[in-house]
């Protein structure tokens, strides 16, 4: 409920502010000098704090096309693809097999660089927007994603790779939304992406590509930071920086609770 009103509020702010290019983070010069259009974009929240009431968050990616050649919103001159990518981490994929009636994990396959979060939002299916080669070059879409070492193209390997993608999708950590971005006016566009409760912390990149006739006309890059805050941050930092102290704290709390419980109930 609160989330929604925040988004509406922010949407109103950016509608007013979208004319001022100062809001945009970084704008790369267009690759084709012939076309003048440039894309500018930003996200509704650049800092996401995970606190004890965190259950996931929806962020708004918005932007505008400057010097747009489009006359009406539905004209389809432009397409937008936004890629939100979280920090990479190594992942092991294992397949269970039956051994003496019991399901046992087989040897795992390790992928070196799997994005902790990866979402592609687009105005249309990405394959309708650009050629496979163009998408591959830009690293857009799960099929073209390079997961680092361990990536081979043998058939059994492919099963592990697609299983990982499927499981990550089930956890909402990989997302593809074919209609995730919509044009509001002739130059304004927006899209929302839901970060689930299990999002990894770290720096996320938000790449927004403006396509015209299957080519990138302009792109813009932004980023957002997911961090733990409040008690979550204190406990997390303590647990990984001073694990022994953290362990002692755990024991201490337990002993105190146990004593308190005993004193509270002993008369009865």
């Amino acid at each position: 409920m609160m989330m929604r009103s925040t988004i509406i509020g922010l949407a109103a702010v950016f509608l007013a502010a979208s004319m001022t290019p100062a809001l945009a983070q970084k704008t790369a010069p267009t690759e084709e000098p012939a076309s003048q259009e440039q894309v500018q974009s930003d996200v509704s929240m650049r800092e996401i704090a995970i606190q004890s009431n965190f259950t996931g968050v929806e962020i708004l990616i918005f932007g505008s096309v400057d010097f747009s050649d489009s006359r009406t919103p539905g004209e389809g001159t432009y397409d937008v693809i936004a890629v939100v990518r979280g920090p990479d981490e190594p992942i092991v994929v294992r397949k269970k097999k039956r051994v003496a009636g019991i399901w046992v994990n087989g040897p795992g396959k390790t992928y070196g660089d799997v994005p902790g979060f990866y979402a592609v939002l687009s105005t249309r299916p990405v394959r309708a927007i650009a050629s496979d080669e163009a998408l591959h070059e830009l690293g857009i879409g799960l099929i073209d994603l390079d997961f680092g070492r361990g990536t081979a193209s043998s058939t059994p390997e492919q099963a592990y790779r697609s299983a990982m993608i499927r499981l990550k999708k089930e956890q909402q950590l990989f997302q593809e939304h074919d209609d995730g971005v919509t044009f509001i006016g002739r130059s304004l566009f927006r899209g929302t992406v839901a970060l689930p409760v299990n999002v990894p912390t770290g720096r996320y990149t938000v790449d927004v590509y403006l396509f015209r006739d299957g080519e990138v006309a302009s792109n813009s890059q932004g980023s957002l930071m997911v961090t733990k805050a409040g008690i979550e941050e204190i406990l997390y930092d303590l647990a990984f920086k001073y694990p022994f102290v953290y362990g002692l704290l755990g024991v201490f709390i337990a002993v105190m609770c146990g004593l308190a419980g005993w004193f509270a109930f002993r008369r009865n």
């Binding site: 406990l235 647990a239 694990p243 362990g247 609770c257 308190a260 419980g261």
Partner: peptide, 28 residues
């Protein structure tokens, strides 16, 4: 608890706290 916290980083104090509160009362 100490060994797990120190070598495996697998202790969740917040979860333990919730369980202990419930456990001490339920135990009585």
């Amino acid at each position: 608890t100490l060994l797990h916290a120190t070598f495996n980083y697998t202790l969740d104090i917040l979860l333990a706290f919730l369980l202990i509160i419930g456990g001490v009362i339920g135990g009585q």
